[in-house]
Amino acid sequence: MTLVAALWRSRPARVGLAILAVFACVALFGPLFTRDARAFLAEPLEPPSADFWLGTTRQGQDVFARLIVGTRVSLGVGLVVGAVVVLLGSLVGLTAAYFGGWVDDVLSLVVNVFLILPGLPLAVVLAAFLESGPTTIALVLVVTGWAWNARVVRAQALALRRRDFVEAAVALGEHPLRVMVAEILPNMTSIVFSCFIGATTHAIGAQVGLEFLGLGDVSQVTWGTNLFWAVTNQDILTESWWTMLPTGLAIATFGFALVLLNFGIDEVTSPRLRIDPKYRALVGTRNGVLRLTTPVAHEDAALARLPT
């Protein structure tokens, strides 16, 4: 709760959350208000008009409808993959850090093996051989993405494992699982949250990439297949920018929102960044030099104007 409340006080996080809220509404309710995304409705490759806001594809489909409908699958896969990756990573990382010894050795070995697997090539190979579709893509992204999170969580949990309050809980007789989940985990919410955002951003990018390469189910309507069709139809040669630009912008905007949210988390976890904007000029660097000297208010015109 405190993390969410603190996040709300940070401007970048607020902007990020607002953008995410818009995307969430579009994903949930947008498809109810658009035309059929698969239907051939008009002449091919019509530029944007009052009738078709973002024009039509080579097959005469409504680009706007495809963008809106595609949002649902793309975001869904991204969030599910982010959540599963973090859940799996946290579980493995916490277990390894808490028990240490041979448990840690074995789990770390597994994590390291998954870490050295080349992620995207493996994803390409897996996606090519398994039945195509969003579920497959999600599975592929989880397999290639969880290990990094396990690594991060393990490192943080190791630092917390020897803290006195964890020892105190053990000495109290708490069950190991409870120590991990109720004592250690709440003290790393910001890092886990950060991992979740990173994993989600990566998942959406990778998913679009795989589908763009034609490794998804091309009959589905997603951001990635939109781009796949735009390229397959060689729209770039006919200068039909409207078939690819809106989807590209949507992906970029969504990633931007997640990055803003991550900035917010940085601010919350690092008090130095949480300073009152009035005084922000004081901290950090001046003329590219890190300020290490104590400023003197009555000798500094800008400072003297600040409220005392």
């Binding site: 300073i275 005084y279 004081l282 290490l292 104590t294 009555h298």
Partner: peptide, 16 residues
């Protein structure tokens, strides 16, 4: 002690 020698970085500020 450290502020008097001005070795404290901001956000410490010598007011007067």
């Amino acid at each position: 002690a450290l502020g008097a020698l001005r070795v404290l970085p901001p956000p410490a500020v010598i007011r007067s």
